[in-house]
Design a protein around this nucleic acid. Structure first.
Length: 262
DNA sequence: ATGCCCACTTCAAGTGGA
């Protein structure tokens, strides 16, 4: 079977219900992983999504903040959701397809402004969240798994518009990149997006603050698609739907896609 | 560092995003 998956930080699933539908109609990924739904699960507007063929959902939600959901056209069963770093936040949910592939959907904490855990508690929480992920993957090596989400870290020099200028900016500091690398190594995760697009600048997020995000193009690649080695070579066709950042009243993130032949 | 935005809660201004 072949299926296409997309991950998108939607920045309020209720406010942008119509944009989710637009993506479903125009791009029709078989599996759509959303972050920052900012909604309790029972208030996610599922009826229009179901009408477009997305009959399966697993989600974790909370009022106003965070929230992750996997909407699927393929049968999908609940496969857990963990409170990493014990923050009491809805930042992880997992589902399993009938072919046995597990899909993890993550929203890693942004980490605040100051990249120092002694001055900024949120930065410590971000590092602890990644450490907890690492320890879990080390304890139980994931297999036949895909990990997607807003990891809030742009690890490579060509994942940001200016490497040197961003070295002390949260999302691109060496300590965050090291934590992310340890998490990736613990599960032997393959960066599918960079397997498919190994060269060149690649972004999935552009700040709302820039007057003209498209021309300035000061982006970062914060949204990722990873896979375990047993299925990573079945992936292809990765892309960022940059156009979605220019849709009316957009999210500040663009969807990232990958296709798997399994 | 970007430039002064955007969403949520709840109706004013604070928190959080990154």
């Amino acid at each position: 079977m072949t299926f296409t998956l997309a991950t998108w930080n939607i920045n309020s699933v209720r406010l942008r219900e119509s944009l989710v539908c637009k993506l479903m109609e125009e791009e029709a990924p078989d599996v759509l992983c959303l972050q920052e739904c900012k909604s309790p699960v029972e208030k996610i507007p599922l009826e229009r999504f179901r009408a477009l063929g997305y009959n399966w959902i697993v989600a974790r939600g909370q009022k106003g903040y965070n929230g992750v959901a996997i909407l699927s056209k393929l049968p999908l069963t609940e496969a857990g959701g963990e409170d990493y770093a014990n923050l009491g936040h809805a930042r992880h949910v997992a589902g399993r397809l009938e072919n046995g592939v597990t899909i993890h959907n993550f929203y890693v904490p942004a980490g605040g402004d100051i990249p120092d855990r002694t001055q900024n508690e949120k930065f410590g929480q971000k590092l602890d969240f990644l450490t907890h992920m690492r320890d879990d993957f080390h304890a139980a090596k994931p297999q036949k798994s895909i990990l997607v989400g807003d990891l809030n870290i742009a690890p490579r020099e060509d994942d940001v518009w200016n490497h040197k200028q961003l070295l002390k900016i949260v999302s691109h500091t060496p300590i965050e990149i090291e934590h992310l690398a340890q998490t990736q190594d613990a599960g032997a995760w393959v960066d599918v997006t960079r397997k498919d697009i190994p060269e060149g600048l690649l972004y999935s997020w552009w700040s709302y603050r820039a007057a003209d995000w498209d021309t300035a193009d000061k982006g970062r690649r914060l949204d990722h698609v990873w896979a375990t080695p047993d299925i990573a070579n079945a992936s292809h066709g990765s892309r960022v739907l940059r156009a979605a950042r220019g849709w009316e009243q957009p999210s500040d993130h663009a969807p990232v896609f990958a296709t798997f032949d399994l």
